[in-house]
Design a protein around this nucleic acid. Structure first.
Lengths: 142, 142
DNA sequence: TTTCTTATTGCAAATAGTTGCAACAAGGAG
DNA sequence: CTCCTTGTTGCAACTATTTGCAATAAGAAA
């Protein structure tokens, strides 16, 4: 099942509408090869439709996060970045606070962590995955 | 050793200055009984010194985070909150995205996680502790 | 096809946080 | 004590993101 169908189904299920702007943002997200800021996504949307507003892009990204189509995280510079999940499973992010790079960790690899927190603190971690801050191998050597 | 001495030592070691504003912010942080926003901290500072600027408060909190005197996290509403660490050890935060409450987890309890990530991904997690998003026991029942 | 409901949007204003820079002040040297 | 260096600050401008609201448009029903 494609992202478009996923989107249509998610929206219908929640009584939400499939708008031209939402289709556009999803299409742009498909083109991304790396996580992008809202501003970068907005710029690409604007090359295809002059009238879309930045606040619409922010609202759409927020919605897509709720629908697990997108994963958002702060790369350490205060600017949120968004990554297309599409039909891929959500995953955890290891985000380097120096260079901003994000490493993916499958949810299953940290299953014992989430189980421990559920058992000990009755805390259910975000099913969309966690964002863990630190420093990557490359930046540790610097 | 008190926070004030810690602060003085940290600053001296890095060639930084001990200013009246920094002492004030630290003093206000001592008074906090729960994590507070920068605006809340600023308001308290203003009751004691009319001339301190909000940008100075932000800068000071940023510095205190680097010095491990303060821990900052986003409680899910987009507004950063700061918690006084003082002489207490840094710890992880379990932050409920519904009510904003933060649960503390000693660093030692997640030592196997940090070891695993270091071994498998060569990723060094933030020594100041991680912020894990999810939902607390109370909000799960809602 | 038309009509109606209501979710969504664009716009401007607002909020939270950051930055550039001239003026200020902490603190070391003499 | 004075003088000097330079880290720090207040201020205004800026950036990233959010919000209120009237206008728009998606889509269901007839």
């Amino acid at each position: 099942m494609s992202c478009e169908k996923l989107l249509r189904d998610y929206l219908r299920k929640r009584g939400l509408r499939l708008t031209h702007q939402r289709e556009l943002v999803l299409s742009v997200l498909h083109e991304l090869e790396a996580p992008a800021t809202a501003e970068e996504i907005f710029a690409r949307v604007r090359t295809r439709s002059q009238n879309v507003d930045i606040s619409t892009v922010y609202r759409t990204l927020e919605l897509f996060q709720e629908l697990r189509l997108v994963s958002g995280f702060d790369a350490g510079d205060g600017i949120r970045r968004y990554e297309h999940l599409g039909v891929a499973a959500p995953h955890h992010h290891l985000v380097c606070q120096t260079c901003g790079k994000s490493l993916s960790v499958p949810l299953a690899e940290l299953a014992s962590l989430t189980a421990y927190l559920a058992e000990t603190y009755h805390f259910t971690t975000d099913p969309g995955g966690l964002t863990l801050s630190g420093v990557c191998a490359t930046c540790q050597k610097a």
